[in-house]
Computed example of a mutant assay.
Amino acid sequence: MATGQGDAAVTPSVWRRYALALWVLLLVAIGSMRALNRYLVGVAYHHVAPVAPLLMEELTGALSFGAFLPPVFYALRWLRARRWRLLWHAAVFAGLSVAQTSLMIALRLLVFGWAGLPADDYAPTAWRYAMEVPTQLFFYVLIAVGLWLFDRYRASRARELRAAQLESALSEAQLEALRLQLNPHFLFNTLNAVSELMYDRPAVADEMLSRIGSLLRATLSAGAQEHRLADEWKLLGLYMDIQRARFGEGLDADVRGDAALDDLRIPFLLLQPLVENAIEHGGQGDHRLVRVEAAREADRLTLRIRDGGGGAARAGHGIGLGNVGARLRHLYGDDAGVKLEALPEGGSVVTVWLPARRWEAT
């Protein structure tokens, strides 16, 4: 019940009352400071005036001007969309000047009369209205310029926020497109391999189809761009099972993972297209050599995929390297990358590096 009462206390009406109270206190503070200034000036020039009349004059002036500021704010924003804005400004200022001076005179006559002090100097004469114009004009221009600058700043911030949101949405859409490219790419390649085995080795083709179903279920159920390295190893294991069914003992694959790195973040299905390339280019005939390893180097997670190909660094295969590079740039910027190098002893190695960040479940 206490929580409910606390929540109920913070309502829009309560916030409006707080804002109104703070606004009145600010106006009182301004009026009091002006009265103090006038009093000290009098002391400095040996013309000491009583404090009470000074305080009543300045408080009625500040409160009467503050009372008209909300409609002035509204009018200043309203007339921005109007033609002949200078004429509209003149009309708004004239109305503000007359209304504020009239309210100030009425308040002073009322307060001075209530206090039993003479109020002859506050009669509503033309000169009384005219003498208030310079001060009112100064504050009107100050408020108009300040409000214009504030609205321009707020509009600029809103544009920046919309631009950032659009950029984020575009980047997310591009990442999702890159991620979804992997499923049909993988499926096409593996089904193509199954079709090659369907008549000569139907039992192997059947086993591959079964394992393809398991891997597709795992990949299609994922919705995030990143997951744990341990989960990436599991997906890679399912893919390796498909390739082992295809190549049998001809696939010499070794995956070296470190359990201490299992909780690091990695893009979803990052390794599969690289390992697929390594298998396709990892040897000749039915013999393939693939080595996969992961290590932490300072604040980086480094992954290496080596094959036993023909000795020259290949320019990539299908969407593999291009997809990986694009995803890394979107997710990590310049903190991540991928490169392909030829090995002196033959074959090539793909090196991927990215920030070593711990996975935190949401």
Rank of each mutant, 00 (worst) to 15 (best):
A158K: 06
L321A: 07
Y18H: 11
R300T: 03
P50W: 01
G316K: 06
G316V: 15
L149I: 13
L54G: 06
L87P: 04
G333D: 11
G113N: 15
A295T: 00
A326S: 14
V338N: 02
W84N: 14
R159D: 07
G31S: 02
V14W: 12
L235M: 09
A130L: 12
L238H: 08
S97V: 03
Y45G: 11
V275I: 08
M1E: 08
N37P: 05
L220R: 10
A130I: 01
D334M: 12
A115L: 15
T362D: 13
G346W: 08
H281F: 09
A326V: 02
F112W: 07
S156R: 14
L166C: 02
L238S: 08
D206R: 14
T60V: 05
L69P: 02
D262M: 05
R34A: 13
L229C: 08
P134D: 14
A21M: 10
V141G: 06
A253G: 10
A2Y: 07
A342S: 04
A155M: 07
R82W: 04
D258M: 09
E160D: 12
A90K: 08
A173W: 14
F138E: 05
D120F: 02
I319F: 12
F65W: 09
V48K: 04
E167F: 03
L220A: 06
A21V: 07
M104F: 01
L229T: 04
Y140E: 01
A224Q: 13
L264A: 01
F139D: 01
M198Y: 11
R108Q: 09
R152D: 01
S64H: 05
T302Y: 01
T60R: 04
